[in-house]
Design a protein around this nucleic acid. Structure first.
Length: 421
RNA sequence: GGACAGGUGCCCGAGCGGCUAAAGGGGGCGGAUUGUAAAUCCGCUGGCUAUGCCUACGUUGGUUCGAAUCCAACCCUGUCCA
């Protein structure tokens, strides 16, 4: 990818572990990093109340940035989310309400506490919200200040814009302005925190470069600004990173349980294990090399380690170990682990008997009655590990074990417990 | 403002008066196989306690025994023109 061998710890690690895609000026950035602590930022859209695995790569990079003595700045897109980033979207996203954005921001914040150390020191992270400055901008003032530095000709060549036009999809003027505001952010963060660099996915390259150029053209940025992008990650299967069984792999526990998060990593493709260990855990490279050398069925040991480490980073070691224990019981033991998702059902209701497909739905193993029925017809539903043959088979209190628990399964990997109360 | 093209299920996309809950593909789910992997093969993929009923092809009306399909108005998108 590059012949230059960086001297700074940060860039060396970023390249070794696979976070590096391209940099606007690798040598100069390296030199700056060697001179002393630097500040760099990543921006996050507030489109959902939790980040997901797709965002994790940039968070990990910030983590390494801090570990190597620098200052990460986490930028909440409280302002830019009101506009909506057109990158990678085929169509305009629905407009979020201001309250919604506010709530999402609260949710997103949580994950950073686990991965970064916040404070005022030169190597401590800070969080900013671009609504703090974008909200106050006057239209004419902004046009006069940054407008002259962007040509529409150039803006039209950016992928985010071009793909929409090529596909004859609408691109509103609102969205068209997104890149200008993101560029403005970079310069603003430079003024506020002395931020010198922006990291982001490779699809953000254009936006990042815009910020750098705006800083240079307005002569408002102190020192040269840098951009560094992370490869756009797909699984060995070519699927986008972070989608799986239950949809997006959320980082917040209230969106996705630590057990399901653990299972996501546990089920990684063989070919992804080494890459993921480097990217999503803190394990030293020598240890990763040993794990990656495992062949055949033994590679499962590496997957367990990956799942444990990755889960521990986000949810804490205790939760990760519990998830591992639950997985062991569920897949290797007698299958009745107490830590599976549990749903309470009044004993009186079960006395009368509840149809199998109804109970599956209640235990959230099927979204609709029809789905539950199909599951049973397809032979994928089990009651206490026994296949359910009849959709309307009544499940009663007599199906519960001594602890008043009934185990339901949908397929081999999704299980739930029904508890009599 | 004008001309033309278009709006179909999670996505792409066929259908162009009844045989249409809507071809085909993608995605997803389940089964077999296996290592909680991959690959392969098979089945399912609108809702409903369900041999039936209810919703659905941009919206609202209309024609017809019968409309995703024909007509009208409106809304939205794109391309070109002014």
């Amino acid at each position: 990818m590059t012949d230059y061998r960086p001297k700074s710890d940060f860039l060396r690690i970023a390249i070794e572990r696979g976070y590096f895609f391209q940099c606007t000026d690798l040598e100069a950035f390296d030199k700056a990093l060697c001179e002393g602590p630097q500040a760099a930022y990543v921006g996050y859209d507030c489109t959902a109340d939790s980040l997901h695995v797709g965002n994790l790569l940039s968070i990990m990079l910030l983590r390494w940035f801090q570990k190597t003595g620098n200052k990460p700045v986490v930028l909440m897109g409280g302002g830019t989310t009101k506009i909506g980033d057109p990158s990678g979207k085929d169509e305009t996203r629905r407009m979020l309400t201001l309250e919604g954005i506010q709530q999402n921001m609260q949710g997103i914040r949580k994950v950073f506490d686990a991965l970064l150390t916040f404070g005022d020191g030169p190597d401590q992270a800070v969080m900013a919200n671009n609504a703090d400055w974008l909200d106050k901008l006057g239209y004419i003032e902004l046009l006069r200040e940054v407008g002259p530095h962007f040509t529409v000709n150039r803006m039209l060549t950016f992928d985010s814009v071009k793909s929409r036009l090529d596909r004859e999809q609408p691109l509103t003027f609102l969205e068209f302005n997104y890149m200008i505001l993101q560029a403005y952010d970079f310069v603003e963060l430079n003024k506020r925190f002395g931020v010198r660099a922006q990291f982001g996915g490779s699809d953000q390259w254009g936006n990042i470069v815009n910020g750098i150029e705006l800083g240079r053209r307005t002569r408002q940025a102190s020192g040269e600004l840098f951009g560094l992008t992370i490869p756009l990650l797909t699984t060995a299967n070519g699927a986008k990173m972070g989608k799986s069984v239950n949809g997006a792999m959320w980082l917040n526990a209230d969106r996705l349980s630590p057990f399901d998060y653990y299972q996501f990593w546990r089920n990684a493709d063989d070919r992804d294990v080494e890459r993921f260990l480097k990217l999503y855990t803190d394990l030293p490279l020598e240890e990763i090399a040993k794990l990656a050398a495992l062949q055949g069925a033994e590679i499962n040991e590496a997957k367990k380690r990956l799942a444990l480490e990755a889960t521990a980073l986000i949810h804490g070691l205790a939760a990760a170990e519990q998830a591992a224990a639950t997985a062991l019981q569920t897949f290797a033991g007698d299958g009745m682990s107490a830590n599976l998702p549990t749903f309470e059902v009044p004993a009186a209701e079960l006395e009368a008997g509840i149809a199998a497909f109804v109970l599956l739905q209640r235990a959230e193993l099927a979204a609709t009655g029809g789905e539950a029925r199909r599951l049973i017809k397809g032979g994928g539903a089990r009651l206490n590990d026994q296949k359910i043959d009849d959709e309307t088979q009544a499940i009663t209190a007599s199906d519960a074990n001594a602890d008043g628990l009934i185990k339901l399964s949908a397929g081999k990997k999704k299980h739930a417990l029904v508890k009599l109360v």
